[in-house]
């Protein structure tokens, strides 16, 4: 009878693992990565506001160019993204957007430009 009890406890332990459930699929960050890539593609192919090749190479060219463009860049990224998304765009000369939270899933993408890499982080509000 003791042996049967041990067996039952063993099987129940295995069952408990299934009953607790399998974690939800991590599809959120894949979707966020897609959003980040889309935003980066749109920005990377956009004409510059003043000079240089594209909008992103314009802001990475010099700290002065970044300071001049930062407000327009932030407004532009904000417009491209949905209202339920938040972003941070990092360039070698500084960043625009919000502080990146540590606890929520984020998507990101890196775009190389002549002046350095631009990283875009996206997460849900």
């Amino acid at each position: 009878m003791v042996e049967a009890g041990v067996g039952v406890v063993f099987i129940l332990a295995v069952t408990l693992g299934f009953a607790l459930g399998v974690s939800a699929p991590a599809t959120e960050s894949a979707q966020l990565d897609a959003y980040a890539e889309d935003a980066a593609t749109v920005l990377a192919n956009e004409p510059p506001r003043h000079a240089d090749e594209t909008r992103l190479s314009e802001v990475t060219r010099s700290p002065a160019a970044f300071d001049r463009e930062r407000d327009a860049l932030e407004a532009r990224v904000d417009r491209i993204l949905d209202d339920n998304l938040m972003f941070r765009l990092e360039t070698p000369h500084g960043a625009v957007g919000y502080e990146r939270p540590a606890t929520v899933p984020t998507g990101h993408t890196v775009v190389p430009t002549p002046g350095g890499e631009v990283t875009i982080w996206i997460w849900y509000v």
Partner: peptide, 14 residues
Amino acid sequence: AVALLVLTTTAGLG
């Protein structure tokens, strides 16, 4: 017999 019954029931449930 009882032990086997309990064990198979639990296994089936699992």
